[in-house]
Design a binder for these strands. Structure first.
Lengths: 138, 138
DNA sequence: TCAATTCGTAACAAAATGAGTTACGAAAGG
DNA sequence: CCTTTCGTAACTCATTTTGTTACGAATTGA
């Protein structure tokens, strides 16, 4: 599954929480909207909680809610929270060090990828969760 | 393996071809630099050929060479050639259509992702294969 | 205190993805 | 012809991700 899959799901989760402000929403409830398993949702929410985007409460009556206003959460923050930030990923086999190309190409490409990813994040950062909510039927 | 993996490999392949201008380079040769299998390389090169970036010649003395000058090939073109352009990917299970959030969120997020991907491509487009070659020891 | 609820997380099965490998036909050159 | 090399299909294997079950810890309310 692609990178955008987890990201889209994470935005969906946040949208459900934003739609129930000041309320503790259970992972079962969110899972019903996502049409998936509660544990999958909790794993997503664990990443979001670690980034300080959501707060969780255990026990009866517990659940999740946004830890910040929807206007202050942008899609770039959500993306970095749930994506594996391992930088540019290379093949399992390292390039042949005997080859002058193979020996040196990775840092060069990695730099270009880093700039491209930064541009992608900058664009995602222009959209807030509140912007997303506005485009949904309330 | 991530998206950047195939992309990095494709740039590596192009760099090897650029390093042997006006020469037909075999997939075996490229595979040695990539430290991988010739068939894997041929699959990558098939995508690059379909995009018009490389030309192939069969038979004895055959191989691959760049179909355009390295100054005219940019990393965005390479990326679009080898990446699955399936737009934003969603989870295997579609969201619950009974939920107003689930029913409507995907197009909204897809639009933001499309803009972000466009920004990423714009950044990759600023770097040409010749730029990459310049940063490698000749 | 006790029971019910809910998160947190581990363990494992199932599914999907991609890489690697083998194989073989088609094309091209000598 | 015979060799070389691409093009591609079929298959296996490793890796990753998702889904599922399970259970302990925390919290609430009776």
């Amino acid at each position: 599954m692609s990178r955008n899959c987890r990201f889209t799901a994470a935005v969906h989760v946040c949208a459900v929480l934003a739609n129930n402000p000041e309320t503790d929403v259970t992972s079962d409830y969110v899972a019903a909207s996502l049409n998936t398993n509660p544990v999958v949702v909790r794993r997503l929410l664990a990443s979001l909680a670690q980034a300080g985007l959501v707060a969780s409460k255990r026990g009866s009556g517990g659940g999740y809610r946004l830890a910040q206003a929807a206007t202050r959460i942008d899609l770039a923050t959500i993306a970095t929270a749930v994506e594996d930030d391992e930088g540019p990923v290379f093949a399992p086999n390292p390039p042949n060090p005997m080859c002058p190309i193979g020996r040196n190409i990775q840092p060069v490409v990695a730099e270009a990828i880093a700039r491209a990813e930064a541009a992608r994040m900058a664009e995602l950062g222009k959209v807030s969760l509140a912007d997303v909510m506005e485009k949904l039927p309330v």
